[in-house]
Amino acid sequence: MVEKVKARVQELLASGKVKGFIGLRELHGHIGPYLFTDGGDLDGFVIGDRKAAGDTRYPLNTQLIMISRQYPEETLGVLVRGCDERGLKTLFNTNQLKPEKVVSVGIACPQELADVCECMKPFPEEFVAGEASEARPFGSVERIESIEIGERLKVWLGEFAKCIKCYGCRNICPMCYCPECTLEAKDFQAVGSIASENPIFHLTRALHMAGRCIDCGLCSEACPADIPLRTLYKKIADIVDLEFQYRPGYQDSKGKMSPNVLGEAAKH
């Protein structure tokens, strides 16, 4: 699978279609994001499967935003799974990236990953490797909804109580790009103090993911306390779909703008 991806990247770099390619590289036993600039030197190029498929994913779109802000004239390539592509579309819609300056190289996720992710679309529109797996429903959301409403808060508070307020969930999130974060606004949250103001810390973040979260699951993976954050954000995506008929990343990039769910007042 990785050979097909490498061949494509090689071609993009050699032809000059892209100036650089943001992918993953294994170095000294670690897998991390890397900017490949020479098609002839793709040493260590990996797609992030170590023990299991997709177990070392990174928010490469975040790197893409950072690099393209520094080199606005250059066209860059980026490795995308289904969720990353949803992210790209949403970032185009919200003017964080220019579609004409980005070339994505897609890979489809295997069924085992789609199952774990409860993924609605485990493949990008075009992919050079892998096969389209089946979508899976949000079983984790249904499980919470099967709990009587009075009991749900206890379940969530039990989860949130484990939070060490490391901000890892926010830091890893490819869709968290606000210059000023409400979770660090002094009049809103006691920054750094533990425990976090539960459940407001988590509900505020959930609210801010409305119309933005593309359900990549990196937040849940990053959370050292194993809080099922993704379930909360899956629900907010369902709610936004119901209220606004919009699900981030599922409309084409020239389609609907993301709804103004939070409004101007939410910008601090």
């Binding site: 959301v141 919470i144 909804e145 709990i147 409403i149 009075g150 009991e151 749900r152 808060l153 206890k154 379940v155 969530w156 459940p199 509900l203 959930a206 609210l207 409305a210 909360l232 629900k235 907010i236 709610i239 936004v240 119901l242 209220e243 606004f244 709804p259 103004n260 769910v261 939070l262 409004g263």
Partner: peptide
């Protein structure tokens, strides 16, 4: 209209979190 939509979103989130 925005207020109405936002309140609707928040009400549903609160319910999911276990708040009436």
């Amino acid at each position: 209209y925005n207020a109405a939509k936002r309140v609707a979103v928040l009400k549903k989130l609160l319910a999911f979190a276990g708040v009436d």
